[in-house]
Design a protein around this nucleic acid. Structure first.
Length: 249
DNA sequence: GCGACAG
DNA sequence: ATCTTGTCGC
C-alpha cells in the first residue's frame, strides 16, 4: 500500500473570507447534467480523514472497492499538517489537500468517489464532495451522518425509504434509510452524478451497516494511518502499558 | 445580537 | 473530528 506525505499548497486560503471566495468562484464548474456511473458495476472509491489537532497532524485514506463484490481493489494514504481550522461550511479546506494526495497515490482508476460529508447540500451549494469533484474531474457524491442545517421528514422505517433534504423549498439532497429502523444518512450530489444515482449507490454500498462500505473502509484506514504517523510521540497508555487486562488486580 | 453548525 | 466505560440488545 502506498503512503505519501503532503505539503499545504502555497496558495491555500488563509482566511474564511478567502475560502468562501474560492467556493463562489469554483461552484460554477460543478457538472449537474450527467447521471454518473451506474451502481453495482466498475469501481467505487471511498475517502475519509482523521485528525490529531494537538499534534497538527492529518491523515487521509482512499480505498477502491469493486462495486459488485465490495472487495478491496487498492488503498492509499497521505499524511500532512492541518491546512485549515474546522469551520462549518468550509470543511473542504481542511480535508482536500490530504485527500487529493491519497487519491493521486492510487495505482488504479477511481470510478465514483464517495465522500464523508456534503456536496450540493451546502450553504453555497459547494461542499466537500463538489469541491473534490471539480478539482479531480471525477464523479463524486457526499454521504453525511448529520442533516447539517437542513430540514427533512423522517423516512419510513424500512431500508430504501427516502425523503427530501430541504433548504427551504429546494431539495439539496435526500435522507436515505440504509437499514430498517436505523437513523438515515444524508446523501447529496457532488459532481457529474444525479441525485437518484447518488442514492442508488449509497444503498448498494450500505446494506450490512448504516454507512457505505467505502467510508467505513476509508475511516478505518485513515485512523490507522494517523496512529502510525503519531506513533513516535509520547503515548504512555499504549507504549508503556501494552495489553494485560490483569495489570491492576 | 444569539444559537446552530458536514467533519 | 475527538475525548472515553460500561451497557442494553439482537
Amino acid at each position: 500500500m502506498t503512503t505519501v506525505t503532503v505539503q499545504i499548497p502555497a496558495d491555500w486560503p488563509a482566511t474564511e473570507e478567502r475560502a468562501r471566495a474560492v467556493q463562489e468562484e469554483l461552484r460554477a464548474r460543478v457538472v449537474r447534467d450527467e447521471p454518473g456511473p451506474p451502481p453495482g458495476t466498475g469501481r467505487v472509491t471511498g475517502v475519509d480523514v482523521a485528525y490529531d489537532d494537538g499534534r497538527d497532524v492529518v491523515a487521509a485514506a482512499a480505498v477502491v472497492l469493486d462495486a459488485a463484490t465490495l472487495a478491496v481493489v487498492a488503498e492509499a494514504t497521505a499524511v500532512g499538517r492541518i491546512s485549515f481550522p474546522y469551520v462549518p461550511g468550509l470543511l473542504a479546506f481542511r480535508e482536500i489537500p490530504t485527500v487529493l494526495a491519497a487519491l493521486d497515490a492510487l495505482p488504479v482508476p477511481r470510478g465514483l468517489v464517495v465522500c464523508d460529508g456534503y456536496g450540493l447540500a451546502h450553504p453555497r451549494r459547494f461542499g466537500l464532495a463538489s469541491h473534490l469533484g471539480v478539482l479531480t474531474g471525477l464523479p463524486t457524491i457526499g454521504v453525511a451522518k448529520n442533516p447539517f442545517t437542513f430540514t427533512y421528514d423522517d423516512p419510513d422505517a424500512s431500508r430504501g425509504s427516502t425523503t427530501p433534504l430541504l433548504a427551504g423549498a429546494e431539495e439539496v439532497g435526500r435522507a436515505v434509510r440504509t437499514r430498517d429502523g436505523v437513523k438515515p444518512v444524508f446523501v447529496s450530489v457532488g459532481h457529474r452524478t444525479s441525485l437518484d444515482n447518488a442514492c442508488a449507490h449509497t444503498l448498494a454500498l450500505a446494506s450490512a451497516y448504516r454507512l457505505p462500505e467505502t467510508t467505513r473502509r476509508a475511516d478505518a484506514l485513515c485512523r490507522a494511518a494517523l496512529r502510525d504517523a503519531t506513533a513516535y510521540s509520547a503515548r504512555p497508555s499504549t507504549l508503556q502499558r501494552p495489553t494485560s487486562r490483569y495489570a491492576e488486580s
